[in-house]
Amino acid sequence: MTPSASSGSDALIVASGLSKRFESLIAVDGVEFEVRRGEVFGFLGPNGAGKTSTMRMIGCTSPRTSGELRVMGMDPATHASEIKARLGVVPQADNLDIELTVRENLEMYARYFDVPRDTAAERIDELIDFVQLRDKATSKVDPLSGGMKRRLTIARALVNRPDLILLDEPTTGLDPQARHLVWERLYRLKQSGVTLVITTHYMDEAEQLCDRLVVMDKAKIVAEGSPRQLIERYSTREVLELRLTDPARKKLAASLDGLAERAEWLPDRVLLYTPSGDTALASIHERGIETDSALVRRATLEDVFLTITGRSLIE
């Protein structure tokens, strides 16, 4: 995790000892990470973990309190406009220009970025198609659905052909169908080689999109790696999820030996971490413990988070 080791020209963002303090609150506490060109890098953590504050420092809209931060080799404290010229930002809350139409939103942002008019017109056409808003191009922004607004915000973030795109909770508040459409577009961006930085508290989002991620909790980075590495390091391959009556719960607690590597006792269910869920379930039944329901699933980043912090991602 030492940034100096590999921070060649391939590192688009390098942070070390990066901190953000708001009066009495420490939002980000000495974090260290590096984002390389062409990768999808994620910040996974619950609300209030410091993800958005970190993103805003990268995006030059929040000055850091201490530590080092370089974005594309430049310091946000002194080169904000130059950095922002090469960034695309998809903020957590939509801030589209609601006094303008879909197309005008893109036109204005192209102007803010000094994109020449001819280039802009062509690019905006492509982007409107890319985010599938062709038949809404002349509509005002307000009547659009949440998913459409998100897609427009993504198109807006692409209008300057950025080297780096920052996406803060890109699918929060969307229905499943709209989320999948956004994921699919982001996946296509990933394949085209754009560097993406994503914050999310959805473990499936992080797993599907991120090449590498850091897990944040209480203003600090608590783990780092690829989704696969993190699951291997902090969890077993499979998880057995059980729902039990209180007596069965007590009985299981008394005879847990040899059943699983680790157990999480959540209020509504018990999670048993084991290389084979089926084997574990069979031996539970052999020991005469009745289960209301049993589900064997593969381990996810949610389990990683639970193991590290003892809490769920979504509370």
């Binding site: 809209t61 130059e82 922002k84 010229a85 930002v89 903020p91 801030n95 589209l96 942002y109 803010y112």
Partner: peptide, 9 residues
């Protein structure tokens, strides 16, 4: 509106 605009140059 400005929150969006300040993310540009």
């Amino acid at each position: 509106t400005y929150d969006g605009i300040v993310t540009t140059p």
